[in-house]
Design a protein around this nucleic acid. Structure first.
Lengths: 346, 346
DNA sequence: CTGAAAGCGCTTACAG
DNA sequence: CTGAAAGCGCTTACAG
């Protein structure tokens, strides 16, 4: 005696009709549908996700693989994803990936293979070849967001352009002695560094500097506040401190700000600093940054995965351009000029 | 021809035996179990979560209701929860609750009733009576973390003590003119303000001030950086600015720091500021705070929910005190003295 | 310890 | 448009 039976009985129809009326799949007369829905509502009936999933093959659930949940950027992207999925009736289950090999094996070889999700979104994590293969063998749509690999489809920011834009801003203020704080490629990264986000930002920086006949310095941070502080201290205590720093993330920029403060170096009078992200607190720090709209990024990848799962072209019918093509264009970013950048001293 | 059948065939046993060998439930000979596991491993077999869930009634999935996923505190707690659940084979599905009434109805009346989860954890959200009732009617274990209601069990910090400790620190430095930035009770909160976290912190503040025969001022922030800045501006531009501010959260304390900076008020020479949380960037801001170990809070509530779901007393056998009793004690907090607090001027 | 069989609560061809 | 029935892929009493 399932709950479905109760509804069918109360509405005087078969369970098949209840299922059709409630899901909207298959034909039902308007009158029947209305009556069934009314009865279901009154009885507080909601179909069991596991039973429906088993019978239909649709889990109505999207898996999201995310590193470091306590990092602002990912939390914000996740929020964007959830904001698009929930209204469509999709749940999101979280798969936190760490550096622990045993944990990763459990994730890719077991957790993800339980058929609990219809598709998976991968947020900026460096995956091994085996892991990419494991994802592929799932037979599920997979989209990455900012993943450092070409293998996974999904929207992405043109990070080379981001690197160029940040550098251009500094150059246009007159800086010639600019250092970049980023991530060293060796740091446990994936196979092909050419697809790496930090590498792209750095490449943009170097290209822009080279275009002016300049050479930029590079110091490795690790995309944390502490790493940024460490890198900035190295730069600022050297024989020839730069007049400007382009940090590959806002959090590293905060670290650079601290390092400058420690040494009594005035920002922006003595030193300009620009970050990347559009972090929550950038306004508080009065930090100039390249905003990459992480919340919107989450929305975009959620829409893309939904389109893949439902086989739709997208919510809006639109004109001649297929929605999928539009959705696969590069993600926007924007320079936000605040008080940490100014012309160089002298 | 299910995947289970393949394994059973290859191992030369029945599907029942495969199920028992793989799950560890029921008896199986050591030899059979080893062989079945070896075959399953070789074939890459992992039981379908939806089929197993339907048959067993166990979803092996915990729902977490969380507001504002992009808030550091919640993201950190979530990380703590996931870190305990994943190793035990439990997935976590996220239910983001916002202020949108339609969205909340969808959550409490539909999403949560799909039997996708074995239990639910509620993170600090103000629930209406109807929502608490809806949670109760789920027939599932429910634990809150820092929920402003007595109805939901679960570990919690003694926030009155937190308020007292912060105030004591300021008092011990010699401050007499202390203001508290918190949250106004009217702000869309739940029925009983007595269970409210912000109210408790404020009560602790007032009790401690009263004990010295002093009266503290109160200004409402809204637990955001901007709200803290606004409240602090109000205090600092008044006729009689305080010599110390106790902010109910680190993020509001950051706002207060900004407001002081705007006005050229030196911290801590002219003004002391203390926050609550143990935020990631507190170290960067050199902020004195009451750390409440959010990651550990997540671990604790995850353990509590796991105990409720599995009916266990907990992982460690322990001594005479039941684990559950120990786990229900108040959560720890700790004063971290940094550079934003000092004796008052003069 | 192991197997045959029923059943978990839905969805969906297939007929009508 | 609607119903009877099979089936989704497991788990679990129930026997043996």
């Amino acid at each position: 005696m399932s709950a479905l039976d109760d509804v069918a009985r109360a509405a005087g129809v078969s369970t098949a009709t209840v299922s059709r009326a409630l899901s909207g799949r298959g034909r039902t007369s308007e009158a029947t549908r209305a009556r069934v829905r009314e009865v279901a509502e009154r009885l507080g009936y909601v179909a069991s996700a596991t039973a429906a999933g088993l019978a239909s093959g649709r889990a109505e659930n999207i898996g999201v693989i995310v590193p470091l949940m306590d990092r602002w950027f990912f939390a914000t992207v996740l929020d964007g994803i959830a904001s698009r999925l929930a209204p469509r009736g999709y749940d999101v289950t979280l798969y936190n990936v760490t550096d622990d090999p045993a944990q990763r094996r459990r994730l890719f070889e077991t957790a993800l293979r339980r058929r609990r999700v219809d598709a998976v979104i991968v947020l900026s994590v460096a995956l091994t070849d085996d892991e990419v293969a494991a994802l592929g063998s799932l037979g599920l749509p997979v989209r990455g967001l900012g993943v450092p690999r070409g293998e996974l489809g999904g929207p992405r920011v043109d990070d080379t352009a981001v690197g160029r834009a940040a550098t251009q801003h500094l150059r246009s203020l007159g800086h010639r002695d600019i250092a970049h704080i980023g991530q060293s490629v060796a740091g446990g990264g994936p196979a092909d560094p050419a697809f790496d986000i930090p590498s792209r930002r750095r490449a943009g920086f170097e290209a822009e500097m080279a275009a002016s006949g300049l050479t930029g310095r590079f110091v490795a941070g690790d995309f944390t506040v502490a790493g940024g502080a460490r890198a900035a201290r190295e730069l600022l205590t050297g024989p020839h401190p730069p007049t400007a720093i382009f940090a590959g993330s806002d959090e590293m920029a905060y670290g650079a700000l601290t390092a400058a403060r420690e040494r009594g170096i005035r920002v922006p009078a003595d030193l300009s600093i620009i970050g990347v992200d559009g972090h929550d607190l950038a306004d508080l720090f009065d930090l100039t940054t390249i905003d990459q709209f992480p919340h919107a990024q989450g929305e975009r990848v959620a829409d893309a995965i939904l389109a893949a799962v439902t086989g739709e072209a997208g919510p809006a019918a639109g004109g001649g351009v297929p929605r999928s093509a539009a959705a696969s264009g590069p993600l926007p970013f924007s320079l936000v000029t605040r008080g940490t950048t100014a012309p160089p001293p002298g």
